[in-house]
């Protein structure tokens, strides 16, 4: 695993890269590398064994410079177009988790020609009437002074999930983990606090533009982004299949890494 900090339009982008072969770009979510942890989780490592796995940190996250001119998802998409140019990536496979999934979908509708295959994991981004995405910001406020149980409950299948407790412990956690969590919330609040929350109304009317075969992976008990969002993505993206992972919540890539990577690798190598 190598870490680099590259310059993109005068701002630094924190980059983790590992493996060889066809480029596989990964856009992270909340319970993930860059947004909590500094290094790969088992999920990423497995994928890096079979591809050139590249994971940038979103603007303002980890060591990526903040950009206070990011007001909407559009600004993040244009940032990533610059990142692609800096990395000289013209066509690649793309995986996006959660907020990263939203960014991936927005990238794909604008530049379908760049993406060979697309994987969306627990992806935000859609307006689905009657199915609001959860309020991660409210859940991130501690209860009883120091409990993050309700945040863990939202992002995982259970508040006492071992991975959840490691990433979002009660009380005081690892300082830099907590700073990364804060940075992710700050970036997310720029694009996802309004409208409430994490959707772009226009996106669902653009999904038909996605040309690549698409796999939509969802935890069976996702309490952050409801199942109907997976179904909507699957229905509106032309060449899409939906895979539900049993016994997992929103952070399916952390809770069930083996099952999730198996689905992805079979799909990518199809």
């Amino acid at each position: 695993m190598s870490r680099a900090v590259i310059d993109v339009c005068g701002r630094q982008v924190d980059l983790l890269e590992s493996g060889e072969g066809a480029p596989l770009l990964y856009l992270h979510g909340f319970a993930d590398v860059h947004s909590v942890k500094e290094i790969w989780l088992p999920f990423h490592e497995k994928l890096a064994q079979r591809a050139r796995f590249i994971a940038p940190a979103h603007p303002g996250c980890a060591r990526s410079d903040e950009n206070k001119d990011i007001d909407t998802i559009e600004d993040v998409v244009f940032h990533y177009l610059e990142v692609l140019d800096a990395l000289k990536l013209t066509t690649f496979d793309l995986i996006g988790t959660c907020v990263g999934g939203w960014i991936a979908a927005e990238l794909a509708v604008r530049h379908p020609e760049k993406i060979r295959k697309l994987v969306l994991i627990g992806a935000a981004g859609l307006f689905v009437p009657g199915a609001l995405i959860g309020d991660v910001f409210m859940m991130a406020q501690p209860e009883f002074g120091s409990s993050y149980a309700s945040l863990r409950e939202m992002l995982f299948s259970r508040a006492d999930d071992a991975n959840a407790l490691e990433m979002f412990p009660d009380g005081k956690g690892e300082l830099e983990d907590e700073v990364r969590r804060y940075q992710m919330l700050r970036l997310s609040s720029r694009i996802g606090f309004k409208p409430p929350y994490f959707y772009n109304y226009a996106l669902r009317n653009r999904l038909h533009r996605i040309a690549s075969p698409t796999q939509i992976i969802w935890g069976e008990n996702d309490k952050f982004v409801p199942r109907s969002h997976a179904e909507t993505y699957a229905a509106l993206i032309p060449n899409a299949q939906m895979k539900i992972v049993p016994g997992a919540g929103h952070s399916v890539h952390v809770e069930k890494p083996a099952e999730t990577t198996k689905l992805i690798l079979e799909f990518l190598n199809d």
Binding site: E66, A140, F144, G145, S150, R181, Y182, Q183, L185, R186
Partner: peptide, 22 residues
Amino acid sequence: RREGRQLTYGPGVPYIPAAAWR
């Protein structure tokens, strides 16, 4: 008050820069 859910200050209202939060 720390009982219940505190809304005034916390990571869910990330209005100060990350360095200040650290």
